[in-house]
Design a protein around this nucleic acid. Structure first.
Length: 419
DNA sequence: TCTGGGGTCCTAGGACCC
DNA sequence: TCTGGGGTCCTAGGACCC
């Protein structure tokens, strides 16, 4: 049995944890640079506020309905996420953290002990609420895709109170019939449209399809989804938590950037982030991609990207940063209003069998990196950093509606005032 | 003033080679 | 008369997810 546990409108709910005064109000959270709406709490959802709309387009509507607006407070969310994952992880022998607010659980030994999955889900829900004041949804199913579907039902369909369990075909039929095609994990708006043209109306119709036919007409990926909906596990537990094949760090600037030095500084910071993520999953980069672009919404849209192959694959922050700053020279163009830059490691190898080059000296200092990670882990990100990462980071993002970093900064710790 | 997220994986089509 | 293949690698862009 699998479970998927995730938070209800995680970012919006996280904002409510330390600010009970907004718990009964509609709350939305904006993406980086306060660009788009990325989380809508259940109360705000009733106002039909669409996700991923540019904020400036709905600003008046939000103001009219007294919607509370918050910028993304990643430090707060990351910390709450970690706590939530720890609580949820206690309930199974295997956990895979899928995103900041979702984790899959896999029950092997526990399976024998659990009599009633719905009750068990309720226990998970109650534990997270009691210890963290975050609402979660819990879905159980014989495959990861069905667990996802059950989770969707738990939160969106009437009759389930945040917990749903699929034990057999009858259960899955009942839920899939009420599910839209694009609510299936792996089916987006594009695929949903095509499937509708073939006469399918609900997730249940997709589940009825012949996987071989789907593979022929669409892709392996969708064929897998169909089989998963039918109750055949295709994503083995190991596949669910496989290492990433690409690792990116990209960001748009708070203001347009026209200076070379600032562009380089931003790119170096992305390189450092990519290097850290690589080390975390035990990979080294064989090939990296670096890009810089102006805004798509502007005339003379400019984008340039470059690829570089390391003769010796690496996850060393210094080496990646160095290479990226060399490449920045070719990305830069004068009189260009740069809007977004990024670095990606697009071909990876495991650290364990690192290929050494015959001709070039290996500059990697894994021990130094280990030390750097340990210090930053303990004292906060970028406590120890490269000089080229810069001091002030003027290019950083715009966050006008930022809440306090309640759990990660001493000066922001909640105070209880007594008269 | 003027605004438009970030991350990962997949694939179609082009370039190149023999 | 006049035609003409197939594999690999690369890359941009698409699709999906949250």
């Amino acid at each position: 049995m699998y479970a998927l546990v995730d938070a209800v409108a995680f970012y919006a709910s996280a904002e409510k944890v330390f600010d009970p005064s907004i718990r009964d109000k509609p709350v939305v959270v904006l993406t980086n640079n306060d660009g788009c709406i990325c989380a809508v709490c259940p109360i705000a959802r009733k106002l039909n506020i669409p996700k991923f709309q540019p904020y400036f387009k709905v600003r008046d509507y939000l103001a009219k309905h007294n919607v509370v607006i918050r910028s993304s407070n990643y430090e707060l969310y990351a910390d709450l996420s970690e706590r939530m994952m720890n609580i949820v992880g206690r309930f199974a022998d295997n956990q895979h953290i899928y995103s900041i607010d979702e984790s899959f659980l896999h029950f092997q030994n526990y399976q024998l002990l659990i009599k009633n999955w719905s009750d068990y889900g309720l226990q998970i829900r109650q534990a997270v609420w009691r210890e963290l004041k975050l609402p979660v949804g819990v879905g159980f199913g014989p495959t990861p895709t069905l667990a996802k579907a059950a989770n969707h039902a738990a939160k969106k369909l009437p009759g389930f109170n945040g917990v749903a369990a699929i034990h057999n075909d009858r259960d899955s039929q009942a839920i899939l019939q009420q599910m839209a095609l694009q609510d299936v994990w792996g089916v987006g708006s594009r695929l949903a449209k095509k499937l509708q043209l073939m006469g399918m109306k609900s997730a249940a119709d997709l589940a009825k399809q012949d996987a071989k036919m789907i593979k022929k007409q669409f892709s392996v990926v969708l064929a897998r989804t169909v089989q998963e909906l039918q109750g055949t596990s295709c994503l083995s537990w190991d596949a669910v938590r496989e290492n990433k094949k690409e690792i990116y760090s990209t960001r748009s600037f708070g203001q347009r950037v026209m200076h070379f030095a600032i562009l380089v500084e931003a790119l170096v910071n992305h390189a450092v982030i990519v290097a850290r993520k690589l080390r975390k999953q035990g990979s080294v980069a064989k090939r990296i991609l670096v890009f810089a672009a102006s805004s798509r919404h502007e005339d003379n849209y400019y984008k340039k990207q470059l690829i570089y192959d390391f003769s010796v694959p690496t996850a060393d922050s210094r080496i990646l940063a160095q290479q990226v700053s060399v490449m920045a020279v070719q990305l830069f163009r004068t009189n260009t209003r740069f809007y977004k830059v990024g670095v990606g490691a697009i071909e990876l190898a495991p650290t364990a069998n690192m290929q050494l080059s015959l001709f070039s000296q290996n500059q990697d200092k894994p021990e130094l990196m280990k030390c750097l990670d340990a210090i930053n882990q303990r004292y906060g990100q970028d406590t120890l950093k490269l000089v080229s990462q810069g001091q002030h980071q003027v290019w950083n993002m715009k966050r006008h509606f930022l809440s306090p970093r309640y759990t990660t900064h001493w000066q922001d710790i909640p105070k209880i005032l007594c008269d």
